[in-house]
Design a binder for these strands. Structure first.
Length: 407
RNA sequence: GCUGGAGUCGUCUAGUGGCUAUGACAGCAGACUGUAAAUCUGCCGGGGUUCCCCCAUCGUUGGUUCGAGUCCAACCUCCAGCA
């Protein structure tokens, strides 16, 4: 059965440590969930995930929609993947944006990139733009989302009911309601419209989920997802509304300007019930994790640690760096790291050589080592934050860590 | 020594008379946040006032031509074959 207990809270009343109990195990929070969109984390087999102390894996219902009957047959995602631990599936809501208004664009931004200037009437002119409607692979209606599968070119459709049916076949411990993620370039007016849709979809998701949540022999839980862009009235209103509904927890969604994140999370979490867990969707950079934990997010997920690893960007206590610059370097990846790659003594030069060797097998070894290093870094960060909250030293730990990392 | 072939950016490479010399790799710089991402963008002869301008440049030197990486000649280097 699913439940959540809070252990200790920060003085601000929002941040906390806790334990999420799921049918496939416990998650001690704050926690980072590794992303294995297709049911496996790229270049990290389940046994290595255990070694680096990952506590949960996030997959995607959209990507697994065609495989979902097979996953159900295997007894659900935990067994199917060989991970055998707590799992979460996303609804496909992110793809509404990434294949639609945000096709080919980045998700988050600095304000300077968003604001092109100020119009004569005083409103902000956006530099960020949405993908033209005609070029989008996903189109949103109240019914759901019509989209073109980018790999096969085939047209398909997912609405809240379809997403719930897929997720209940996949059988992760935690599911996400089907939502519409708006882009930074969307107007207030559009966000009002999209948020109404997301709220209607939340109701429909809940209703459909109830029908199938026990189909695999254990209780699957559902989180409602909060949208509302960067507007306080929308955020508070939707948090209150969804907070009164019978969800097991909440997903904190949106495309964020970094500097707005803390405030937006505070608006949401001041309205949401305390006793249900909250998952901050899609963030993992240290500054974001600290803000999330401080403002009451319990779990996190993000593709960045694995993707950036494959792209040669590695994390260390003293900041991130590009391995490209460390030809023949004898420096450790991170002198304070306890990941398997660091414990085995791999240097930056070693990893760079594996990366650039031109040998496909060596490249896979590089992807593996770099990925476990970055994922362990973020997992360890959440462990340390948890400990700092328990020890009453969160502020101290935060300022020290961020100073080391960002200089 | 003779005959044939070849010399283009760090490397490989396109280019057979016409405007700004192609592409790839390597290199350099940057990006990436619920994975259309093992990806993408920019730079990549020199200099400057760097969304522009100047100079140099297809082995070397000459020649033909309005115009040559491209055609011609000689030379240099490399490769192959024959002596």
């Amino acid at each position: 059965m699913f439940s959540f207990e809070i252990e200790k809270s920060l003085p601000n009343g929002l941040g906390r440590t806790g334990i999420i109990h799921t049918p496939h195990g416990d998650i001690k929070t704050p926690a980072f969930m590794v992303v294995g969109t297709m049911g496996e984390v790229k270049n990290i087999p389940p046994k290595d995930l255990k070694k680096l102390k990952a506590q949960a894996m996030l997959s995607n219902g959209y990507h697994l929609r065609k495989k979902s009957p097979k996953i159900a047959e295997a007894g659900g995602l935990a067994k199917y993947s060989g991970w055998n631990g707590p799992t979460l599936t996303d609804s496909g809501g992110f793809q509404v944006m990434s294949l639609g208004s945000g096709l080919g664009k980045v998700v988050s931004m600095e304000r300077a990139q968003l604001e092109g200037g100020v119009r004569k009437d005083g409103t902000t002119q956006l530099k960020a733009t949405n993908t033209a409607h005609k070029d989008r692979l996903a189109k949103v209606t109240d019914k759901g989302v019509d989209f073109i599968d980018p790999f096969t070119g085939e047209p398909d459709f997912i609405g809240p009911e379809e997403s719930m049916q897929i997720q209940c076949r996949i059988g992760a411990d935690i599911h996400m309601a089907f939502d519409e993620l708006t882009s930074l370039a969307d107007s207030y007016e559009y966000n009002v419209e999209a948020l109404e849709r997301t709220e209607k979809w939340a109701k429909r998701s809940l209703k459909e989920h109830m029908k199938h949540r026990d189909d695999l022999g254990y209780r699957q839980s559902l989180y409602g997802v909060l949208q509302g862009g960067r507007w306080e009235d929308l955020r508070r209103k939707t948090a209150k509304k969804l907070g009164e509904m019978d969800f097991d927890g909440y997903g904190l969604g949106g495309a964020f300007l970094k500097e707005d994140l803390a405030e937006i999370l505070r608006w949401c979490n001041e309205e949401l019930p305390d006793n249900k867990p909250r998952h901050l969707l899609g963030l993992s950079h240290p500054d974001d994790i600290f803000v999330g934990a401080e403002m009451g997010a319990d779990t996190f997920d993000c593709v960045a640690p694995t993707r950036e690893a494959r792209h040669g960007k590695l994390y260390s206590k003293n900041g991130e760096y590009n391995l490209r610059k460390f030809h023949d370097s004898p420096l450790p990846l991170d002198e304070h790291c306890d990941c398997a790659a660091c414990k085995a003594g791999y240097t930056r030069g070693d990893l760079r050589a594996l990366w650039k060797s031109g040998d496909p097998e060596k490249k896979l070894i590089f992807y593996h080592l770099a990925s476990i290093h970055n994922v362990r870094f973020v997992v360890r960060l959440t462990e340390q934050i948890r400990k700092s909250i328990i020890d009453g030293k969160f502020e101290e730990f935060k300022s020290k860590f961020l100073k080391n990392y960002y200089g």
